[in-house]
Structures are given as structure tokens and as C-alpha cells.
Amino acid sequence: MIRNTQGKSERNPILKLEHVTMRFGGLTAVDDFDNVAYEGEILGIIGPNGAGKTTVFNVITGIYFPTSGRIIFDGIDITPYKPHQITHLGVARTFQNIRLFGDLSVLDNVLVAQHHLLSTRDADKILVRHGKEPKVKGHLWFWRAVFKIGYREKERQMIEEAMNLLRKVQLDHLAYEKASSLPYGQQRKLEIARALATEPKLLLLDEPAAGMNPKESEELMEFIKYIRDEFKLTVILIEHDMKVVMGVCERIIVMDSGKIIAEGTPQEISRNPRVIEAYLGKEWEHVNT
């Protein structure tokens, strides 16, 4: 919460969406979205179903190419890049409907997310093109992996890192379980851990509290703050659970029918008559009862 009290002018925007519009045929899912995420903040996006929240995530992560507008991440125009390239540059996400690699173990799920760090050639090309410092994590290519030339040591390192990460999110005791066999709450957590393993600067969480009981969502709030500080992240989250949004977000953007209808601190949002009318009313009552 300390970060939030600093003046706006001092804050450094890590993600800028410039007049982003996304149309599917006649449907305008996102209409002139123009906003930023500041480095280190936890930003919430709320709004009724079909407001275009997830589409915003899909546009940021390159799954959809916006009809118009630009997306600037960390000083790089990422609009033309593909999802995996955007991940290389430091944006990671989770999905509304959990998308784990169900048949793989918990550990393997995390290891898959580290795969792109083996060889950072592709990412480095983009970074250099934009005048940035390349990552150069060593180029361990395909042949070395197949013929095991110095690969076993690398694999051991990867496993160690993955286990460290799993320990931090308290999933290490389940490392060798099948991902699909975990209970729902743990699956959500694993999805976050997997996203963290890609070494992001910006983490997008799509309804992380969906299907959680009050105790679990309480823990989740602490968890989100913890990973933000531990991994020095910026977090944007889409959430319906108002308690989570109000409890964890430092700034909130409210969307309705593809448009931003309000923006501000949780206090400001909860007092905004337009928001209460359009969306918050019922939910807010629901939380208070």
C-alpha cells in the first residue's frame, strides 16, 4: 500500500495500452482502451460478464491482434509479437478456465515454463532490436539436450530452481503428483507458480479466486501481495470477488461493454455512483451480507 501513496508523476508505467480496440465481426469487445499499469502496482480490472476484461488480457498477451491501437511493454511496442515472444519479454498470465498440462507432474508444469530460458536467442534478437540489454542465458541447443552434452547438469539446475519456486508457493510436497489430480485451489496456485517460472515482470491473473472458498481467497490475497514483493512484479488481475479486489488492489479499472467507465483507488471506486449503478451495487451488497 505504500507504493500507492506516492505521487502519480513519480511512478513509472511498465505497460501502456494506447487506444486499443478489438472487434470481432460486428461485436466490439474492447473499445478504445487507453490506460497504463505502473511498475510494482497491483491493478484490478472489474466489470460484468462480457465487459471485455479477458479480451484485454488476450490482446496484451498477443493471442488476439488488436483492430487498432498499440501496446507498449517496458518501452517495447509488443503489438506485432506472438504470444510466446511476449512471454519471453516478461509478460506471464493465468487463464480463467485453468489450462494446466494435466497429464504432466506439478514439477514438469513448472519446468515447461522454464524451457524458453534454455536458449534466449529469439528473445535477445527482439531486445537488441529495441536497443535493450539481451538476456543471454547461455545457448543450450537442441543437440546438446539430445546427446546430453553438459545437459544433465543444466537439467539438475532447472529442477532445483523449479523446486525452490514450488517451495515458495508451498506446492513442493506435491511436486510429483499429476497436475490434474490436484484440488481446485491448488491448481489455481500451480498456474500462478507456472507463470512465475517464466520469470515475468508483469503477471496477469484471470479470475484467480474463482471457485475458491472464503478461507482460500483470504490466503490468495496474501499470496498475491507476497509474490509481488518476492518477485518484484507488477500484477494485473481480473476478479469478480469484490472482497479480493478491494483487499488487494491498489488501483481499479472498471469496464462495461468494452469501455472503461471508471478508474481509481478501491475507496474511490466503491463510492463512484456510476460504478455502483452499472455493476457494483449487487455484488457490493452481496459482500456486505
Binding site: 512471454t87 519471453h88 494435466g102 504432466l104 515447461v112 539436450a145
Partner: peptide
Amino acid sequence: SSYGRALLAIRENPIAAEAMG
């Protein structure tokens, strides 16, 4: 190897695999 895990990930969920870089 890590490459094989990447292939398995593609089988399990191509969209998530792409999102994991």
C-alpha cells in the same frame, strides 16, 4: 529432455504452452 517436456505441453494444451513461452 526439456524439449520433450515442451512437446508434451503442446499436446496437453497448446494455448497454455504458447503462453508459457
